[in-house]
Design a protein around this nucleic acid. Structure first.
Lengths: 251, 251
DNA sequence: CGAATACAATCGATCGAACGATCGGACTCT
DNA sequence: AGAGTCCGATCGTTCGATCGATTGTATTCG
């Protein structure tokens, strides 16, 4: 169960050129998420990364460039993950399950970066903003196509596809607003719950996900770990922990 | 069909002490929503309201106080609306329908204020933030109780009540992020769609809202208009325009 | 080999601009 | 006369950004 169908090395390399740069990026993500772009001064930024403001400029170019790098990198990973999921999920119900799971897991674990992407677009200068918005649109297209295909195949029934897409994305992104590591549920349980909620939303009163068991294996944990170069907490059992299973609606 | 069961004058009086103050509040809401609290300077604020920075201070106290007034007022209206809905909706399915409708309509029409409430809490000083967070919690409690009552009555089936509440609130608040007046759907159609989506989400694969027709009348248009002191665009037919009706899932 | 060279990394000091906020005084209206 | 409303001028602070200079560390040259 360990070896997935993931390509050899799909990970996005970090944009950092060395360890100091990496430290700056990490500090900036945290501060931008906490206080916002305009609420974060370059002196805070420098102090948080442990160097002078002059040294900071050696790496970041300008403060606005730093924000752009952070958002561009975060979105690039999301797009890559979505494209791999699309390529390796034949059944559209499975595809959507995986999109939701990936989105929720990354929004919980890469909380700060997700919040920066979601809330700080307005702080970008107009040219950079265009690039970022196009990336975000590209990501949303994977969702739009999944929903469209599911409706065409007769699996999904929604009052309006765009609204359904926005609803699922908003509720899944919302996880980054309220999730905290010590909470009632683990990341995987929250992902399970949101897969359930999305399924209900898309079935509009019909039957729930009856997942075909013949799908080739693609482990979302492995995918996220390789693309984000992070280590996820072990999940208790698979798929779905006992707690999440118990909460599930009997059909 | 015009006279609802609404109390005589439930409206929240505007916190503005005169027309100039009102202009300041409106400018501030727009600017804070567009550029954020820290991204808005008092000189922009003054220029946008058509006076000097010195005069600005005559009304707003401090910039932070101005933000607090805006958020407090917006949340007060939401809480009042929710309490009236709770008091006048016997059936829990109707109660949730109305909560969603009210929330979506106000987030579309009072877009800027909603975005300020949703995104600028972090800019408040710790004392003010406590007050605002308590108001927001009070508002969410109406939703929590509605969902709990619906589950207890056997109408709703969700994997987790808190997650379901956050999901519905996030997707409904999301309207304030992407709604624009010239879009494909009218405000009422968007509200209809979200009532549908919330219903699907809460029924978890069961049957949809079969609304009891015996409920005493409470018109959400009237409610919102009186509490927010605004005039909503006329809705084409009632309930639900043709466009929204056509999109609806046949059962 | 050791000296010379090149370049990345760092910082103290400082720039002009914009920031939030305040003052005293000048206009209205009663 | 007195309260309410407005503003020009200006306060001290912080902002994002840049400068010249110094260090550390390879690489090249004689």
């Amino acid at each position: 169960m360990s070896e997935g169908v993931v390509l050899s090395k799909p990970g996005v390399p970090s944009p950092a050129i060395n360890e100091t740069h990496q430290r700056i990026l990490e500090s900036a993500v945290r501060l931008f998420a906490d206080r916002g772009f305009y609420g974060t001064g370059i002196r805070e930024l420098a102090a948080s990364a442990g160097l002078s403001t002059a040294s900071l400029y050696h790496y970041m170019g300008t403060k606005e460039r730093l924000l752009f790098q952070i958002m561009h990198d975060a979105l690039q990973r999301l797009v890559l993950a979505a494209s791999i999921i699309e390529a390796q999920s034949d059944d559209v119900r499975v595809r959507l399950d995986r999109l939701v799971r990936m989105h929720v897991v990354t929004h919980a674990l890469s909380r700060d970066a997700s919040n920066v992407v979601d809330n700080q677009v307005g702080a970008l200068d107009p040219v950079d903003r265009l690039v970022i918005v196009e990336q975000r649109d590209a990501y949303e297209r994977f969702w739009a196509h999944a929903i469209r295909d599911g409706v065409d195949a007769g699996y999904f029934h929604v009052p309006d596809q765009s609204s359904a897409r926005m609803a699922i994305l908003e509720m899944s992104s919302g996880v980054a607003r309220w999730y905290s590591a010590g909470g009632k549920y683990s990341v995987d349980e929250i992902a399970d719950i949101h897969v359930d909620l999305a399924a209900s939303l898309l079935h509009g009163g019909g039957t729930r996900f009856d997942r075909p068991q013949t799908e080739p294996h693609l482990d979302i944990h492995e995918l996220v770990e390789s693309i984000w170069a992070i280590r996820l907490p072990e999940r208790a059992s698979s798929p779905g922990t006992k707690a999440a299973q118990a909460k599930r609606v009997p059909r």
